[in-house]
Simulated assay, not measured.
Amino acid sequence: MTGAGEPLQARGEYRYYKNGQLQPIAESWRQGGDAAGERWLESERCIDSGLIIASRANLRGNLVSRVSLSWRAASCVIEAHYDRERGLCQWQLAGGESQSMAIPPAVPLYPLMRIYTGAVIKELAELGGEADIVIPDIRPQTAEREKLQPLLSRRRCQYLGTADIDLQGRVRRAEKWRFSGDQYRAGSEFLLSDSGRLLRYDWQQDAQSQWRVELVEQPLAAD
């Protein structure tokens, strides 16, 4: 998705573990800036079923101001565009007509990929620790042809202090946060870097499913 003349500033991926076992989910991300000095962030999640969810966001400070998303599955392709500043979401099923819906511009926008999580937690904290956020709907119970439509979700966060953690064999100082709402219970713990990037989170889905997602940073020289 990256265009010419857009230098990379950082890149990496998130790895998913269920009950300690690495899962066939690949979620890569890149961050950079364009020739006009505007910062962007993009991420792509590939699942072994063949589903690909991709996003490209424009950043205002550390916050997402606009984002384009795509849902690509064997049965359908959907494109969506969220513009927080205009308060508008537009989406289109391939071969269908474009639809639109107003979204509240003052509400945080969370494109759901892991690389955007830290910024949403920090914005929630500035709003007092609890607020509605706008997310694209990718819930399992939502019909596939209705994916990526805007959904309001009540979320809460709480700062828990700092800790040293082992991340891919390297000791990192991390901020500990509780981030809850929807599928995330009150015990879900999220660890952020001092710059606000998600390093790791742990989530108990149900009695049989314990998830861990970890950041793996990649050197720019490898691009």
Rank of each mutant, 00 (worst) to 15 (best):
G3D: 10
Q9E: 12
Q9W: 08
Q9S: 14
G12N: 02
E13A: 14
Y16W: 12
Y16A: 04
N19C: 07
Q21H: 11
Q23P: 07
Q23I: 00
Q23L: 04
E27D: 08
S28Q: 12
W29T: 04
W29A: 07
G32I: 00
D34I: 02
W40H: 02
L41R: 03
S43P: 07
E44C: 15
I47M: 14
D48W: 08
S49I: 03
G50R: 05
I52M: 12
I53F: 07
I53G: 02
A54P: 05
S55A: 11
N58V: 15
N58L: 15
L59Y: 02
S65N: 09
S65G: 10
S65L: 13
S68C: 12
S68R: 14
R72L: 15
A74R: 14
S75L: 15
A80Y: 05
A80D: 03
Y82T: 07
D83M: 09
R84A: 06
R84M: 07
E85R: 13
R86T: 11
G87N: 04
W91H: 04
Q92P: 03
Q92H: 02
E97G: 11
E97W: 10
Q99T: 09
A102T: 08
A102Q: 12
P105L: 06
A106M: 13
V107F: 09
V107Y: 07
V107C: 13
P108V: 01
L109C: 04
L109A: 02
L109D: 02
L109Q: 05
R114T: 13
I115G: 01
I115V: 13
Y116K: 01
T117A: 09
T117F: 05
A119Y: 02
V120Y: 01
V120P: 05
I121W: 01
I121G: 00
A125W: 10
E126K: 13
L127Y: 08
G128P: 04
G129I: 02
E130Q: 14
E130W: 07
D132P: 05
I135R: 08
I135S: 08
D137P: 02
D137N: 04
I138L: 11
R139E: 12
R139M: 12
R139F: 11
P140N: 01
P140R: 01
P140H: 03
T142I: 05
E144A: 13
E144F: 09
P150F: 03
L151M: 11
L152S: 07
L152C: 04
R154S: 07
Q158Y: 06
Q158E: 13
Y159N: 04
L160P: 03
A163H: 00
D164P: 04
D164L: 01
D164E: 09
D166V: 00
G169A: 05
R170W: 07
R170T: 14
V171W: 00
E175N: 10
K176C: 11
K176I: 15
W177D: 01
W177F: 05
R178Y: 07
F179T: 00
S180D: 06
S180W: 08
D182R: 06
L192Q: 02
S193D: 01
D194G: 09
D194I: 12
G196E: 01
G196A: 06
L198P: 04
R200W: 05
D202I: 12
D202M: 13
A207Q: 08
A207N: 05
A207E: 10
A207G: 04
Q210W: 06
V213G: 06
E214A: 05
E214R: 07
L215D: 03
V216I: 11
E217C: 11
A222C: 15
D223Q: 11
